[in-house]
Amino acid sequence: MGLIVCAAIALMSAAANACTRLIYETGNKTFLVARSMDWMEDPKTDLWAFPKGMKRDGGLGTGSITWTAKYGSVVASFYGVATVDGMNDAGLVANTLYLGESDYGDAKASGKPLISVGAWTQYALDNFATVDQAVDALSKEPFAIVAPALPDGNAAGGHLSLADATGDSAIFEYLNGKLMIHHSPKYTVMTNSPTFDEQLAISAYWKNIDGLSFLPGTINSPDRFVRISWSLNAAPKEKDERLAVATTFSLIRSISVPLGLSEAGKPNIAGTIWRSVSDISAKRYYFESAYSPSIFWVDIYKLKLAAGDKPSHLDLNGHPIYSGDVSGKFLPAEPFKFLSN
């Protein structure tokens, strides 16, 4: 057995993580971004509408970075302390997935303004319209990330993916205290461990295998990366908007994990709690809870996202059954506070 094959198998057996993100291109050369949120318990996700003009900070008190939101956004929260998913009114989509290898370095020793890992995704949505803009600005490392433990006691480590209306894509990972950026429209799939460069190496090996005859089948992260990459390339590029959304949902469902599945001692391998699809062209954010039998969506154009508007939120506590357009159901609310010590 060759060295590459051995390495691929070793990585697949060693990695056990959750969540998947993909970018689907339609026949009209527009793009939809889907992600699954896999976790060992319900992370109490709500949807929020944050207007442009909001005064923000990194959530860590004195020394935190501050900014004013240039763009409005609809986002999904995580335990009420982090933004982990969403799209802004310029069409930038952000998805943060768990990454056990994350190491943000010694933030206090950096001498830079601080930002909670819970605010990282929101910072991108508030400040950038395109992936190029984000890569240019974030590569200068304007802040140092602090990652306190999550409310459930688990480590808060993740990598951030961005996509825009052109299909451009970038993935940001902090490894051994250093920022790694993978920037290319070719990067249409992201899962979790191992790190993205190693995922690409595994995927390159599997490109030589006939996917109609055999694909790796476990719920481990590298296997999911390979399977969804093959499915994404095989899926037809639909021109009809409804079919395009349906195809994107079918892809992310196909790689999801059964609800309730968990493994003792591995909090990051678990069932799919919810899925989202961001239709960048239509500026529509779709959401599907594994606890509910239907899909609902938010039209960004219908939200109050102008400067001076108040933040609002859609309470998903208790898993209410929503269907169709819920843009009018958002109610004014004080924004959640980002994860802190």
Rank of each mutant, 00 (worst) to 15 (best):
E241H: 15
N127C: 11
I145S: 00
E263M: 12
F225K: 03
T30N: 07
E41S: 15
S281P: 01
D299E: 13
M12E: 14
V131T: 06
D210N: 14
V257W: 01
S193C: 03
T20A: 10
D325L: 07
W206Q: 12
D152W: 02
A290I: 05
K337D: 04
I228M: 09
H319A: 06
T195D: 12
L232P: 00
L251E: 13
P51C: 06
P43W: 01
Y24I: 07
M1E: 02
S213D: 13
A307M: 09
I321F: 09
L3D: 05
T83E: 10
I273R: 02
D132N: 09
N220H: 15
W39G: 12
K302F: 11
L175W: 06
P222E: 13
Y322E: 07
L314Q: 05
A7Q: 07
D325G: 13
T96M: 15
T218E: 02
T130C: 08
A147H: 03
L47I: 04
P148K: 11
S161W: 00
Y79F: 15
F50E: 00
F196V: 11
F143G: 01
D46L: 07
A155Y: 08
A234W: 14
H313N: 07
D103Y: 05
R56G: 01
T96L: 08
P113G: 09
